[in-house]
C-alpha cells in the first residue's frame, strides 16, 4: 500500500467518523426542528444537554478530510472546490451558523429570574434549520463527487439520504441517552422516531442504487460487484437496528446503526477506487508529489493518534450521568 492509499484510508475514516458522530449532532438539530407532542420541550432539552459537551468537537473529522485532500490530492481538491463552490459555501454557512446559534440560544435562555433574551427563540430556529440544511448540502456534494457532476438525479437523492442518516443516527443514539438519564418516556419518543427514520433511510438507500445506475453505471456495477459485502453489511445493520429498537435493546441498536451508515461510505470508497473524481481523475494523477506524501500521512496519523483518544475520553466522561 502506497502513502497515497494510506492518506485515502485516513480520509475515508474521517468521512465515516464525521457522518456517524457529526451526523448524529446534525440529526439532533433535525429532531429539535421536528420536536412534537406533549414532551416537546423535554425532547429539545435532552438534545441540547447531550450535544452541549461535545458541541463542535466532531467537526475535527471534517478538518482531517479537508487537510488530507488538500495536502495529499491537490488536483482533486482543486477540481472539487470549483465544481462544488456553491453547495460547499452553503454548507460552510450552515456549519458556522449552527455552532454559533447553539451557543447563543444556550446563553440567551431564561435564567430563573428573568425572561429569555430577545432573539433567543430565533437562534433556536436558526440552529435547527442550519442543522437540517447543512447535511443535505453535504450529501448533495457527496453525490456529486460520486457521479462527477452536480446535475443529474443522484446528488439530490444523496442529499436526502444524508439527512435521513443523520436523523436516524441521532434518534437511535438519543434512545440510550434518554434511558441512561432515567427518562423512559423520552426514550419511547426517540425510539418511534428512530424506527420511522430507519424506514425512510432504508427506503432512500434502496432508491439510491437504481438512481445511481442512471448517473454512474460503472460505479454502480462495481458497487454491486466489488463492494457487495459492504452493501450487505449496511442492509444487515439497518435491519438489525430496527429489530433492536423493536426489542428496546438500545446499545446494540447504536452499533447496528453505525454499521448500517458506515458501510455505505466504505462501500462507496471501495467501489470508486482508484477513481477520485469521475469521470477520469485517478488517485495517482491527483496525488501530490511523491516526496510530500509520506510526510502528510505521518502528520495525519499523528493527528489521529492525539484526536481519537481525546474524543473517546470526552464521550466517556459525558456518557456517565452520575458524573454530571
Amino acid at each position: 500500500m502506497s502513502a497515497a492509499d494510506g492518506i485515502l484510508v485516513i480520509i475515508g475514516a474521517g468521512v465515516i467518523a464525521y457522518l456517524v458522530l457529526g451526523g448524529a449532532d446534525f440529526g439532533g438539530g433535525v429532531w429539535d426542528l421536528f420536536a412534537r407532542g406533549p414532551r416537546r420541550d423535554f425532547q429539545r432539552q435532552l438534545i441540547a444537554s447531550t450535544m452541549g459537551p461535545v458541541w463542535e468537537a466532531n467537526h475535527v473529522w471534517l478538518v482531517f478530510v479537508l487537510i488530507g485532500l488538500f495536502s495529499g490530492f491537490p488536483a482533486a481538491f482543486g477540481q472539487l472546490s470549483r465544481m462544488l463552490a456553491v453547495p460547499l459555501a452553503v454548507a460552510l454557512l450552515g456549519i458556522v451558523l449552527r455552532g454559533s446559534a447553539f451557543i447563543f440560544r444556550q446563553y440567551g435562555a431564561a435564567a430563573s429570574t428573568e425572561a429569555p433574551v430577545r432573539g433567543t427563540a430565533a437562534w433556536g430556529r436558526i440552529f435547527a434549520i442550519a442543522s437540517t440544511v447543512t447535511p443535505v448540502t453535504l450529501g448533495l456534494c457527496a453525490g456529486a463527487v460520486a457521479t462527477g457532476q452536480l446535475t443529474g438525479p443522484f446528488p439530490p437523492v444523496a442529499g436526502a439520504l444524508a439527512i435521513a442518516f443523520c436523523a436516524y443516527l441521532a434518534a437511535v443514539f438519543l434512545c440510550q441517552e434518554a434511558r441512561s438519564r432515567g427518562l423512559p418516556a423520552l426514550a419511547e419518543d426517540f425510539r418511534r422516531r428512530g424506527l420511522a427514520a430507519a424506514a425512510v433511510a432504508g427506503a432512500l438507500a434502496a432508491l439510491a442504487v437504481p438512481v445511481l445506475a442512471i448517473d454512474a453505471p460503472d460505479l454502480t456495477s462495481r458497487l454491486i460487484d466489488r463492494a457487495a459485502v459492504l452493501v450487505l453489511c449496511s442492509a444487515a445493520g439497518g435491519l438489525g437496528s430496527i429489530v433492536a429498537l423493536l426489542r428496546r435493546r438500545f446499545v446494540p441498536a447504536r452499533i447496528a446503526a453505525v454499521l448500517a451508515v458506515g458501510s455505505v461510505v466504505a462501500g462507496w470508497g471501495v467501489a470508486s477506487y482508484p477513481i477520485m473524481v469521475p469521470p477520469s481523475l485517478t488517485v495517482d494523477q491527483a496525488a501530490a508529489p511523491a516526496q510530500t506524501l509520506p510526510v502528510t500521512l505521518g502528520v495525519l496519523i499523528a493527528g489521529f493518534a492525539v484526536t481519537v483518544p481525546s474524543l473517546i475520553l470526552l464521550f466517556r466522561i459525558f456518557s456517565r450521568p452520575a458524573l454530571r
Partner: peptide, 11 residues
C-alpha cells in the same frame, strides 16, 4: 455573529 456575541456577553 459579532453583534450577537457582544449582546450575549453583555447580558
Amino acid at each position: 455573529l459579532a453583534t450577537s456575541l457582544v449582546a450575549v456577553l453583555r447580558r
